[in-house]
Design a protein around this nucleic acid. Structure first.
Length: 434
DNA sequence: TCTGGGGTCCTAGGACCC
DNA sequence: TCTGGGGTCCTAGGACCC
């Protein structure tokens, strides 16, 4: 049976989430900022129309904000995460096989449906997600993932499509590819795009006509796969439905303001270790190698100091306390006095699931175990909120490294005290709001 | 004043093995 | 004069994704 895949992707996802709960933002140029209110990571079409590029630092558009031309919001991941899972559960009504590719998009298996029904199914998906979650989405349908991505691109960029494109027909494929810049193809980034340009390959259509073997020789097997997919072959498999089956866990942050003291830097890293180990246990995994990283601000005209250090433990562990014991001496090795630190991170690598590893000759345990104390701590934090119990070294006071989020909206869907209040008489919200 | 935080996969080259 | 061939593992770095 020929594979049929729908790629469903929410439009300007973070912005759309904000609009669901504040309809006064509908029609306005709106941007959502990265952590620390640093740069713009999501834009509505109205903001794009003003020429504000992805990744623009917030300070460059401050004048527009002050003039009331645009709106900005801090990123509210509690809200976006919850809206994402609502979106995904609507998709799961259409097919038993849904691969969540990122917070705002998913591949949906539609193999087996008659060809003449595909467009209608796509339209139903779009309509139901809109009605049940308030999120506008685009749907692209094709015979492999790369073409589904391309179909989705068309759904978003050509209003006449109504946001749904069935690209299973080869004639339509060819027509679309001939007018699509090669840079829009999934897997072609700015670097590869530039190199393709040198060969005179500027559209998806031109890329699709290349010989895969030649592409492999000049570029890579990765791009070769992309070309094969553009030619209709199916090369990128469905990901196994193992949630959280990661190979590494990273917790890193830029700081709200520069950190200068050892103690502050240490406290920030304790925080990252705490969260990384919590994620590790949530996946039922263990690790015996970690990396600590500290960075100064590369954009600042000040002395720079960037350093990494690898920490190792003989037998795999998921015990926060084990890593914390190594953290302070490790940080002492790479910390230098007199620098303005802007970012730090902790990364667990070499994850294993507790079987099939080399045990320490002198260890009492044959298999790694989750210490009871960690299990209890996780249970309490799940029930009473994040970091209800935390390592004392995190500290109790506000620290300079806390994230700046000056334009944060409430956690409408995940915190009782933040739930939206609607005034029936006030007519505050337009009728599209249910 | 002010520029994110995750991830993945692939390749090349060095160290080391017999 | 003349110095192999095949393999693994690890790491760093590059490229991509959202």
């Amino acid at each position: 049976m020929r594979p049929v895949i729908a790629l469903c992707d929410a439009n300007a996802f973070y912005c759309s989430c904000e609009r669901v709960f504040d309809p006064t933002l509908i029609g306005r140029p709106l941007g959502v900022l990265s952590n620390n209110d640093g740069c713009i990571v999501a834009r509505t079409p109205e903001l794009k129309a003003l020429g504000v590029a992805m990744g623009t630092p917030a300070f460059r558009v401050r004048h527009l904000l002050e003039q009331g031309v645009i709106d900005l919001r801090s990123s509210n991941y509690a809200l976006y995460g919850d809206m994402s899972s609502r979106f995904m559960s609507v998709l799961e009504q259409f097919s038993p096989k849904v691969e969540v590719y990122s917070i705002d998009e998913a591949f949906v298996d539609l193999a087996g449906f008659p060809a003449d029904q595909l467009h209608g199914i796509g339209a139903d998906m779009k309509q139901r997600v809109q009605q049940w979650t308030g999120l506008p989405i685009g749907v692209g349908i094709a015979n492999n993932k790369t073409l589904a991505k391309l179909a989705n691109y068309a759904a978003k960029n050509y209003p006449a499509t109504g946001g749904v494109v069935d690209l299973t027909d080869p004639v339509r494929q060819r027509r679309l590819m001939d007018i699509t810049p090669v840079r829009e193809v999934w897997g072609v980034g700015s670097r590869i795009g530039k190199r393709l340009d040198h060969w005179g390959i500027r559209t998806a259509g031109e890329l699709s006509k290349c010989k895969p073997a030649w592409i492999r020789k000049e570029f890579s097997v990765v791009l070769e796969r992309t070309v094969c997919e553009l030619q209709g072959e199916s090369c990128i498999p469905w990901e196994e439905e193992i949630t959280g089956n990661k190979h590494q866990i990273i917790c890193s942050r830029s700081f709200g303001q520069a950190v200068t003291t050892f103690d502050d830097l240490h406290a920030a890293l304790v925080n990252f270790v705490d969260r990384a180990c919590e994620k590790l246990r949530a996946q039922g995994k263990f690790s015996r190698e970690a990396l600590i990283m500290i960075r100064t601000d590369p954009y600042r005209d000040a002395p720079q100091h960037n350093a990494n250090l690898t920490l190792s433990i003989p037998e795999p562990t998921c015990d926060t306390r084990r890593w914390l014991q190594l953290l302070r001496p490790g940080l002492e090795k790479i910390y230098r006095e007199g620098f303005l630190y802007r970012k730090a991170g902790f990364m667990l690598v070499d994850l294993c699931d507790g079987t099939g590893f080399q045990a320490d000759l002198w260890s009492e345990h044959v298999l790694p175990e989750t210490p009871a104390m960690m299990t209890v701590m996780d249970a309490i934090n799940r029930r009473y909120g994040k970091q209800t119990l935390k390592p004392a070294a995190v500290g109790l006071n506000e620290r300079p490294w806390h994230m700046a989020r000056k334009m944060l909206t409430p956690q409408y869907t995940t915190r009782w005290s933040d739930i939206l209040k609607v005034n029936a008489k006030g007519q505050k919200y337009p009728s599209t709001f249910h």
